[in-house]
């Protein structure tokens, strides 16, 4: 018990509070002008919007993948199931250089897209691609267990009462799976807001255009602007904590729903 508390204080609580207190010690004027400067605001907007688009895409793709993996039997299913975890296990930097190379105008996919005059590299859409990769397993891995522990009786009784497949899905299955889906999507969203390694290679990091908030912190640090970095980080941290609170709320709601 003592070890747990000491460990958490040393590794988590003390360092995090340094950032929070540091931000409070800053001149309020300087703090506000830093976080509301157009370049920083643009980076927040970009981080949030790309994370949101990726999360929504993952809600659909992740759900369908979980559904397919749980309910269908086909060759290669077990391999796919195992590979869902790859984005967890693969270092983000490796993912980053992979996507940057794949989607570059001379890359495997980039070539094809270039013919259609679509460019993903150095564009927000490229960031979204990287964030989809990062967030994907969160959705699959939260929906999958709920889906596989679903009692067949629920569907069977719905069908015996005359509901068709679609009605059964929409009225019985979806409401049951929704809390888990929401948890997974929120996790993916929260993770995507702070993601750095996989994004910077494909983003091109153009100020105002493809500069994400974590990179903003990095840039300020490189210029030895510690206060500026803290200010940007503090706001990002606030957003993350809000996400955690939302997540907690969802989980509590989920528990209540199952009681």
């Amino acid at each position: 018990m003592g070890y747990t508390v000491f460990y958490l204080s040393a590794i988590v609580i003390v360092p995090l509070s340094t950032l929070v207190f540091g931000a409070f010690r800053m001149d309020p004027q300087a703090f506000i002008s830093t976080v509301t400067s157009p370049r920083v605001l643009a980076s927040y907007r970009l981080s949030l919007s790309t994370a949101l688009v990726a999360a929504i895409f993952n809600a659909v793709a992740g759900f369908l993948t979980a559904w397919t993996l749980v309910r269908y039997r086909f060759p290669g299913r077990k391999v796919l199931d195992a590979l869902v975890d790859l984005p967890f296990a693969l270092p983000t930097a490796v993912a980053g250089i992979c996507f940057a190379t794949l989607y570059s105008p001379v890359g495997w996919i980039g070539q094809i897209l270039a013919k259609a005059d679509i460019q993903l590299i150095n564009a927000p859409s490229g960031i979204v691609v990287a964030l989809i990769f990062i967030g994907f397993p969160f959705v699959v891995r939260t929906v999958q267990p709920v889906l596989s522990e679903l009692e067949p009786e629920m569907e069977e009784s719905a069908q015996s009462l005359g509901a068709n497949r679609w009605q059964t899905f929409r009225k019985i299955l979806l409401p049951h799976l929704f809390p888990a889906l929401l948890t997974g999507v929120t996790l993916a969203f929260a993770r995507a807001i702070g993601e750095y390694g996989s994004v910077i290679f494909i983003a091109g990091n153009l100020p105002f255009k493809t500069e994400i908030a974590p990179l903003m912190i990095m840039t300020k640090l490189d210029q030895f602007d510690y206060d500026g970095a803290s200010a940007v980080a503090f706001v990002l941290l606030l957003i993350s904590f809000t996400m955690l609170l939302v997540l907690n709320g969802i989980q509590r709601w989920q528990q209540k729903a199952y009681q």
């Binding site: 360092p15 340094t18 807001i193 702070g194 993601e195 974590p214 941290l237 955690l244």
Partner: peptide
């Protein structure tokens, strides 16, 4: 609180994770 803290590194940007130690012991 302890359980909530276990979710923290998923939500906190890795860049911030680095930054806090620079701020603490730089």
């Amino acid at each position: 609180l302890l359980i909530s803290l276990l979710d923290l590194p998923f939500a906190v940007s890795p860049v911030i994770a680095g930054l806090i130690f620079v701020l603490l012991a730089g």
